[in-house]
Design a protein around this nucleic acid. Structure first.
Lengths: 194, 194
DNA sequence: GAAGCCTGTTAGTAAGCAGTAACATCGAAG
DNA sequence: CTTCGATGTTACTGCTTACTAACAGGCTTC
C-alpha cells in the first residue's frame, strides 16, 4: 500500500522559500542570486529561467503574501464575553496568524523604503486587528464589564504589548515566545475589568 | 558683542550623521558613498580621506553609540512609590532615552546579521531596564501595593507595551508617539495595583 | 605672503553582481 | 528508443561601486 504522496515543493516554491529565508535575514541587496540558488539547491540559471530576474522573485513573494487575507469573522465567533478569556484568545490569535508571517514582517521592515506598500499593508492589518479589539471592548463597556475609557486606547494597550512581544521573539530568536502570555494578559485584563 | 559661537559640526560629525540618517533608512549595502557625500555636503574624496572606508564610518557610528552608557541611578532617584506615577515616569524615561536612538535601533535591526553585537547590546539594555522595573515591582509587592506574581512578568508586560509603541512610531513615522501614554499606562497600573 | 591643511576634480582600477547565450545532460513519457 | 522539458555548465557582457592617485584651489595662521 502506498503511503500518502509527499508533494515535493515545486521549483518555484523552493526558490521562493529560499529567497524569503535569506532576504528576511540580510535584506534584498545583500542576498545574491548565487546564494538563492545554493539555498534552493539549484543553479543560478534555473533561478533566472524560472523568475527572469531577482526583483521578480521578491515581487512574487509580496504578491503571495498580499493575497492571503485575514479572517475577521473567525475571531468574533470565538468570543465568550469573559474578559480575560477573550483577551487571551485574541492575543493568541494574533500571535498565531501574525506569527506565521515573521519573515515577511522582517523583510517589510528592512525594505520599507524600497517597498513601502508592503510595510503599510502590514501596519494596516495590525490597525484593523486593534479596531476589532476596540469594538469588543466597547461592547464590554456597554455591558458594564470593562471600565470607562477610550476603547481604542484600551485596545492599543493590549496590542502594543502583543506587538512588542512579537517583534522581540522575531528579532531575537532565542527570546521567549509565548511563555507567560497568559499571566501578562491577565494583568491587562485586570486593568480593564470594571 | 559676539553672540555665542555656533559650533558648526565638524566634517566627521557631519559625515557620521549623514551616514546614520541614510543607513537607518536603507541599510548599509544600499547606501553608496556617493550618497553619503551628497547628504553630508562633501565630495566623495573627503569621505574616504576622513574615514578611509565605508565600513569605518559604520564602525565609528556603533562605537559612539556603545560608549554612551545609560544611567540607572537617575531612574531610581525619581521613584515616588505611587504605582501609576512611577510606571508613567519609567515609561516616559524609556521613551526619552531609547527614543533618542531610533536611528541606531533601525540600523541594528537591518544589519543584525552583519553586526549582531550592536543588536544584542540594544536588547541587553532593554532587558536591564526591565530588570529595574521588576526590582521596583518586587519592592512594591513587599509593601503590599502590587498584586502577587512574578515581578519579571509584570515588568515585561509594561516594557513590551512600551517597546511595541516605540517600534511602531519608529517604523511608521506618522504614527502617534506619546499620545495616550498616560491612559495606557494607567490601565497596566490598575492591573498591577493590589 | 608663505606654509600647511582641508577640500574638490578628474581619471582611473578592480571587484562583485545581475543577467544572457549556447551547449550539454538526464529523466520521464510517449 | 526517441523526444522533450527541466536543469546544469561555461563563458561572457555590462553596470555599479568601493577605493586610489595626482593635481589644483582656497582658507587660515603665523
Amino acid at each position: 500500500m502506498k503511503t500518502k504522496q509527499e508533494t515535493r515543493p515545486s521549483t518555484s516554491e523552493r526558490i521562493l522559500s529560499a529567497t524569503l529565508r535569506l532576504m528576511s535575514e540580510k535584506g534584498y541587496k545583500s542576498v545574491t542570486v548565487k546564494q538563492i540558488a545554493a539555498e534552493a539547491g539549484f543553479s543560478e540559471m534555473t533561478i533566472f529561467r524560472t523568475f527572469g530576474s531577482k526583483k521578480a522573485i521578491l515581487d512574487r513573494l509580496i504578491e503571495n503574501y498580499l493575497y492571503t487575507p485575514p479572517n475577521e469573522k473567525m475571531i468574533r465567533d470565538r468570543l465568550t464575553y469573559d474578559l480575560e478569556t477573550d483577551l487571551l484568545m485574541l492575543s493568541e490569535f494574533y500571535h498565531d496568524t501574525v506569527g506565521a508571517t515573521e519573515q515577511i514582517y522582517l523583510l517589510s521592515v528592512m525594505e520599507r523604503s524600497v517597498m513601502p506598500d508592503l510595510h503599510v499593508n502590514i501596519h494596516h492589518n495590525a490597525t484593523k486587528f486593534t479596531d476589532i479589539v476596540a469594538d469588543y471592548l466597547k461592547t464590554m463597556q456597554e455591558r458594564g464589564l470593562v471600565v470607562a475609557g477610550d476603547p481604542l486606547v484600551q485596545a492599543a494597550t493590549l496590542m502594543y504589548f502583543n506587538y512588542g512581544k512579537f517583534a522581540t521573539y522575531t528579532l531575537i530568536p532565542r527570546a521567549d515566545r509565548l511563555n507567560n502570555l497568559r499571566d501578562a494578559v491577565a494583568v491587562i485584563a485586570r486593568g480593564l475589568a470594571a
